[in-house]
């Protein structure tokens, strides 16, 4: 079976801040990492390959530095990595990003038919969770989002558990299909030393906007229907009120609970079992 993993290199988003003076992103010195959800997508692809045989191809769209992420990904046991990199791809929104990645998958599919595409639930920078479903739709593959368990894979079906607000859903889809995955899906492995050494010298295949029949009107800033009009820092969270609970804990507790109700923080009734949506 042929598994394709969509993997994005992202800035460690917990360290990205807004410059309060210029209202621009401060990315300098922020380390880049493999999008955490995508690491689990890769892990699952490798596990499935180990189980049913086949190969794992990684597709990444990003700047040339993303090679680093691809080498790291190769060290876990992938077979092939493709980097889509071109200035013309820059500024793509999720619709355009899905278009570009889909074109690459279709190209791969011509010579090496794809059975399953795996993507992360969302990227921790853009946070839209729209790219995976966009790719599935363009490929005409059924999509299974929020996957936390793959229970069965046959030559023409896959069965998974999906994580929803109020529980988990068991769904079966025809192959080829696309999954977007949650972190609970699996535990990440460590790369073996020989794999790491091989990967260090690995050169990903490069695809640019001229490599095959891309429609330039569907990519980059111009091909993106959404545009970021402005960015700004969220209102800073300042510490609230501190109450002294050392002398009269009961009195202070009563005072706090009173405030919670005054602030109208809607409480879930115990029988709603936390799934009040």
């Amino acid at each position: 079976m042929h598994f394709v993993v969509c993997l994005k290199q992202v800035p460690d988003s917990s360290e990205v801040r807004i410059d309060p003076k210029t209202n621009t992103l401060m990315r300098e010195g922020v380390p880049s990492i493999i999008n955490p959800y995508d690491a689990h997508a890769l892990e699952e692809a490798i596990r499935l390959k180990e189980k049913v045989g086949g190969k794992v191809t990684i597709v990444t769209m990003g700047p040339p530095q993303a090679k680093e992420a691809l080498r790291k990904a190769m060290s876990f046991g992938a077979d092939r990595a493709i980097l889509l990199t071109d200035r013309a791809f820059g500024g793509s929104d999720s619709l355009a990003t899905a278009y570009i990645i889909t074109q690459a998958i279709l190209k791969i599919h011509e010579t090496d038919p794809v059975d399953l595409v795996l993507a992360g639930k969302e990227a921790i920078d853009g946070d839209t969770a729209q790219t995976g479903p966009g790719i599935a739709t363009r490929l005409g593959f059924p999509q299974l989002t929020y996957v936390i368990k793959v229970t069965d894979i046959t030559s023409d079906t896959i069965t998974v558990h999906r994580k929803l607000e109020t529980g988990r859903e068991v769904v079966q889809a025809k192959l080829p299909a696309l999954l977007t995955v949650e972190k609970e899906l699996n535990e990440l492995r460590y790369a073996s030393l020989p794999n790491m050494m091989n990967a260090a010298a690995y050169e990903p295949e490069i695809v640019t906007a001229n490599s095959f029949e891309f429609d330039v009107t569907q990519m980059g800033l111009k091909g993106s229907p959404t545009s970021v009009n402005k960015i700004f820092a969220p209102p800073a969270r300042s510490g609230g009120e501190k109450l002294d609970g050392t002398k009269d804990p009961k009195g202070v507790a009563a005072q706090l609970v009173e405030k919670v109700f005054q602030e109208n923080i809607v409480m879930v009734s115990p029988d709603a079992k936390g799934g009040n949506r």
Binding site: R237, K242, L243, D244, G245, K250, A253, A254, L256
Partner: peptide, 21 residues
């Protein structure tokens, strides 16, 4: 620094009081 309300105290005393309230 991020809490809307903080209670400075021992959880042994404060938490049961919150639960009861």
């Amino acid at each position: 620094r991020v809490a809307n309300y903080g209670i400075v105290g021992d959880f042994n005393e404060v938490v049961p009081a919150l639960t009861a309230e």
